[in-house]
Write a protein that binds this DNA or RNA. Structure first.
Length: 488
RNA sequence: CGGGGAGUGGCGCAGCCCGGUAGCGCAUUCGCUUUGGGAGCGAAGGGUCGCAGGUUCAAAUCCUGUCUCCCCGACCA
C-alpha cells in the first residue's frame, strides 16, 4: 500500500502537515500565514463549536457579536493589555483605493483620522460597550460569549496551531464581586477541561500560569495544558480573571445595594481552532487522522463491495437498510456508493479522514447476513452479524470514545516525569521530553534561566496541590511542584 | 526578524553545475477490462518553469532584486 503520510518518528512536523492535507482539513491560503479551512475541517470545528456552545448555555451564557475593528485609542486604555498585543496588530489606515494606470493604489486622501485595529481579542471594544450596559447591581452579571475571527500578526505560523487569522470563541463576563468573577473564571476552566477530555478525548492538566505567561491585562490566567505525541505541550485553552483592570480602563461602574458606586469585576476565556491541531496531535497515526466519535462529522461509513451489476444492486440494497437503521438511531452515517473508486482506495481514504467506524459489505456478507466492522482507532476488523448492528455500532462508538481517552491518557502519563534535581530535569528533557514536574522557587528569574538553558517553560502551576520542597535550581523553598515542558 | 532548504501542469518531483525553447510519477478526460486494502491497458487534455528586471543570437538554467512556503531560533492561543 502506498504510504502517503510521513511516519511520525521520522519527521513529526511533516507528519502533522501530511495528516492535515490527507484528511482534507485545511491548506495554506494565498495570504501569508492564513489558512483555508476545508469542509472536513469546518465540519469538525462546527461539531466542537456546538459541543462548547451547549456547555456555555448550560452555564448561563448567551452569544453576542462585537465589531471586527477596534479604534486604536481603545486598545491603549489598558496599559498591560496594549503592551501585550501592540507588536502583533493588523492596522487599517485608509478607507479606499484609486485606479492608477491599470492597477490600484491606496488613496492617500482616504487616510483615517484614527486608525482601526483588526481585533487581536475583544476585551477593549466589549468593555467600552459594557459601560453603557451597566448602571445597577441588577444589571450584573453579564455573561456573554462571541464566536468570531481574530487576527494576530505572527512571525511564524503553523496550520491550526498558529495562524494569523483564527476562529475562536471569547467569553467576556462582568460581575458585582471579586468572588463571583473568580468563580466564573474557574467554572469556565472546568468547562474547557470537560470539553477537552469528554469530547476531544484529550487529557489535560489544569493549572495557573506564572506571571510571565499570564494574559496581558489579567490578574490570574488559568489554563488547560495537553501533551502531544512528540512530547511537546500545547496550551489548549485559557480562562482569565481580569480583576477590575478593564472596568477601570473603561470606567464601568455600578451602584451596589449599599448605594456605593463600585467597579465591575471581569473574566474572559477562549479556545480556538488550535484545538483541532491538538486533536490531530493527540490521536492520529501514520494512516492519518483519528477523530473521537462525538466530534466526527461522519461517524460511520458503509463501503459496498461488488463485481457486477447484480451484486451491486444486492449489496447496495443491503447497505441502504443498514444506513437507514443507523440513521434512525441518530448516528452520523454515510454510504460510500461512489462507483469510480475501488474498496481498497475508499478504506485508505476514510482512514485518512478519520471516520471512527467502517462497515464493509460484500456479496459474502449479504449471503451470510454479516458485516465487516473496522475500528479506525485500533485498525482492527471483525465480522459481525447484521442483526442488531445498530445497537452494536452505537455501543462501539461509545467504547471508541472512552478508549481514545484512556489511550491518550496512558501515553500522557508515560511521558510525564517527576524530578528533584536540575541535572535530572535536563536529562529527562533531553532523552524523553514530555511533562516534567519539578520544584520551582516562584521567581521569574529562575523561570527565565530554566527557559534559556533548556527551552522548557512552566506550562502551569497545577491546581491539584503537591507537597512543598526546594527549588531544583536555587534550593529555595517551593510550595509545590510545577509542570514544565517544551511547548508549541 | 536571524540561520538553513525550496518554489517547474491539480499534487509530488527531475532537469539548473556545463544556457539551445520542458519531462517523469500520481491525478484528470474518454474507451475496454476490473472491484474483499490506495486497479490494469490504450488514447487524450493540461505548464509563458513564483514574480520583476538584467546578461545573451538564445534563459527553467547565469546575475540582481522581490514575494511565498517549509525547517531551526526569537514572539505567541
Amino acid at each position: 500500500m502506498a504510504q502517503k503520510i510521513t511516519k511520525r518518528e521520522q519527521d513529526y512536523s511533516q507528519w502533522y502537515l501530511d495528516v492535515v492535507k490527507e484528511a482534507k482539513l485545511a491548506e495554506h491560503s494565498p495570504v501569508r500565514g492564513c489558512m483555508v479551512i476545508r469542509p472536513n475541517g469546518m465540519g469538525l470545528w462546527e461539531n466542537m463549536r456546538q459541543g462548547l456552545d451547549n456547555m456555555f448555555k448550560e452555564t448561563g451564557h448567551e452569544n453576542a457579536y462585537f465589531p471586527l475593528f477596534i479604534p486604536k485609542s481603545f486598545l491603549s486604555k489598558e496599559a498591560q493589555h496594549v503592551e501585550g498585543f501592540a507588536k502583533e496588530c493588523a492596522v487599517v489606515t485608509h478607507s479606499r483605493l484609486k485606479s492608477v494606470d491599470g492597477g490600484v493604489e491606496v488613496d492617500p486622501d482616504s487616510k483615517l483620522d484614527e486608525e482601526l485595529i483588526v481585533r487581536p481579542t475583544s476585551e477593549t471594544i466589549i468593555w467600552d460597550t459594557y459601560r453603557s450596559w451597566v448602571q445597577s447591581y441588577r444589571d450584573l452579571p453579564i455573561l456573554i460569549n462571541q464566536w468570531a475571527n481574530v487576527v494576530r500578526w505572527e512571525m511564524r505560523t503553523r496550520l491550526f496551531l498558529r495562524t494569523m487569522e483564527f476562529l475562536w470563541q471569547e467569553g467576556h463576563t462582568a460581575h458585582a464581586t471579586e468572588e463571583e468573577a473568580i468563580a466564573e473564571t474557574e467554572q469556565m476552566l472546568e468547562v474547557y477541561r470537560s470539553f477537552a477530555e469528554d469530547f476531544m478525548a484529550m487529557p489535560v492538566i489544569t493549572g495557573r500560569k506564572t506571571e510571565s505567561e499570564r494574559f496581558a491585562g489579567a490578574i490570574e490566567t488559568y489554563c488547560i495544558e495537553a501533551l502531544m505525541q512528540d512530547g511537546k505541550a500545547l496550551q489548549a485553552g485559557t480562562s482569565h480573571f481580569l480583576g477590575q483592570n478593564f472596568a477601570k480602563a473603561f470606567d464601568v461602574k455600578f451602584q451596589d445595594k449599599d448605594g456605593e458606586h463600585k467597579l465591575v469585576w471581569a473574566s474572559s476565556w477562549g479556545v480556538s481552532t488550535r484545538l483541532i491541531g491538538g486533536l490531530i496531535m493527540t490521536h492520529s497515526d501514520d494512516q492519518g487522522l483519528v477523530i473521537p466519535p462525538k466530534l466526527a462529522p461522519t461517524q460511520v461509513v458503509i463501503v459496498p463491495i461488488y463485481r457486477d451489476d447484480e451484486q451491486r444492486t444486492n449489496v447496495l440494497e443491503y447497505g441502504d437498510s443498514i444506513f437507514e437503521e443507523l440513521k434512525k438511531l441518530g448516528i452520523r452515517v454515510k454510504l460510500d456508493d461512489r462507483d469510480n473508486y475501488k474498496p481498497g482506495f475508499k478504506f485508505a481514504e476514510h482512514e485518512a479522514t478519520g471516520i471512527p467506524l467502517r462497515i464493509a459489505i460484500g456479496p459474502r456478507d449479504v449471503e451470510n447476513g454479516n458485516v465487516e466492522l473496522a475500528r479506525r482507532d485500533t485498525l482492527t476488523k471483525n465480522i459481525e452479524s447484521r442483526d442488531g448492528i445498530g445497537v452494536m455500532v452505537k455501543d462501539l462508538l461509545e467504547t471508541i470514545q472512552v478508549d481514545l481517552f484512556e489511550t491518550a491518557k496512558k501515553r500522557r502519563d508515560e511521558m510525564t516525569s517527576e524530578v528533584d534535581s536540575y541535572e535530572e530535569f535536563k536529562k529527562v528533557l533531553e532523552n524523553k521530553g514530555g511533562f516534567i514536574y519539578a520544584h520551582w522557587d516562584g521567581t521569574s528569574e529562575t523561570e527565565d534561566r530554566i527557559k534559556e538553558e533548556t527551552k522548557a517553560t512552566i506550562r502551569c502551576i497545577p491546581l491539584t496541590q503537591g507537597k512543598p520542597g526546594n527549588c531544583m535550581v536555587t534550593g529555595k523553598p517551593s510550595e509545590q511542584k510545577v509542570l514544565f515542558a517544551k511547548a508549541y
